[in-house]
Nucleic acid binder design. Structure first.
Lengths: 222, 222
DNA sequence: ACCTGAACACCGTTCAAGT
DNA sequence: ACCTGAACACCGTTCAAGT
């Protein structure tokens, strides 16, 4: 068992965990998550791939570290309105805004649930707002969960379409399908026709969020 | 330009698109998406990796093909209740049930939005139910979108936690954090304590869905 | 038209050795 | 204790050639 205190022994470290995470963040910001590989990152910090494994267990851990770093650095706590229902809206919208700013986070979010310790303030305030609206603590956790599903889904779906648009700009399979529907079988979609695409491209996150929160509070009360 | 009709020329094909998709489905069902590689798939159909590229453009296209195949094969159309609100619930729940049965679909869903042509019946009926509840077509599309975000998010988050549970069963970072919270800073979460984990593990999809649909209809009316 | 072989440009990670 | 080099066991895809 190594001595935790006392003078440190052995070869002094040349790279630190912080240095690695910082380089990873730069790499992701400049070239995208796809370019974040252990080998690239190693050359970025002026070392070898295997030196990294002395500071992080594997790539997965590195991604979680990166998520924590991002959360601590960019989650700005909003001013809280007095009205508890509005508080829930404002806090959820703040989470969403932070996520929208970095689509790469998707990969990590589906690898580890929600966020780091520094994000718990957001959980706390959503749950608190819901309880003040009359939910029991249990109902509040379930309602929080529903809000998180909605928020995560919006971000994931939106990030995916953005990626697809960036890749190829052929008129999308979907558009072609919608342009030639059978009005007898699918009357509503046919009537919508080419309006479907622009309508689904609109940002209606807040409207949906308000509807969801209203519904959650009403159901818990009734 | 090649002749589409007339007698076919050149070497006869030894593998077909269908055969490839079928083998891919088997591979994914038996070993998981991670094991679906062009090389593995090639040996599975008794051919070489490059033969596949004669039938599908790239791996991405193969995944979309696989999604279509899955949709056509397992999306069972539910009986539609007379009440339009209940219709929306039933159809959304059917989509969710189909998705829950195959977590690998996550990768493809975030690669291409929603589903294949055979899934449009579901879109149609959700939009129709919403319009019959009094929404304008535009509101109905936006409401459909909100339902899709919620449903996709639920599935993605749930699939991610399942994957994590399957990998390592250490008491999860999250549990440890929740066991030692500062009650002054985070009173609600502290009070919940260890109940957080089991509460968020409960399946409350339908409750959240009903709340969302109620809220969407109420907001559109008001 | 359809398939093959060899090659390119990569991955994450392990293992044994060096300082 | 920390780092290196070489190697393992893979990837998706391109290109030139064969039948």
């Amino acid at each position: 068992m190594p001595q935790p205190s006392a003078q440190r022994r052995g070869r002094p470290p040349r790279i630190s965990r912080e240095e690695i995470v910082e380089a990873a963040r730069r790499l992701v910001d400049e070239e995208g998550v796809a370019k974040l590989t252990m080998r690239r990152l190693a050359t970025q910090v002026g070392s070898t791939p295997m030196a990294l494994y002395h500071h992080v267990r594997d790539k997965e851990e590195l991604l979680v570290l990166l998520l924590d770093d991002y959360a601590a650095r960019t989650l700005r706590r909003p001013d809280l309105p007095a009205d508890p229902r509005e508080r829930v809206i404002v806090v959820a919208a703040a989470i969403r805004e932070a996520l929208a700013g970095c689509p790469w986070i998707v990969e990590v979010l589906t690898a580890d649930d929600l966020m780091s310790e520094s994000a718990l303030w957001f959980n706390e305030n959503i749950v608190d707002g819901l309880i003040e609206c009359g939910l029991t603590p249990e109902q509040a956790v379930h309602a929080y969960r529903a809000i998180w599903y909605y928020t995560a889904g919006e971000m994931l779906v939106r990030a995916a379409s953005a990626r697809r648009r960036a890749r190829d700009d052929r008129p999308t399979y979907r558009d072609r399908v919608f342009a030639a529907l059978d009005p007898a079988a699918l009357p509503r979609l046919s009537a919508l026709g080419t309006r479907w695409a622009p309508l689904t491209a609109e940002d209606t996150y807040l409207d949906g969020l308000r509807a969801l929160v209203d519904g959650l509070i009403a159901r818990a009360a009734g």
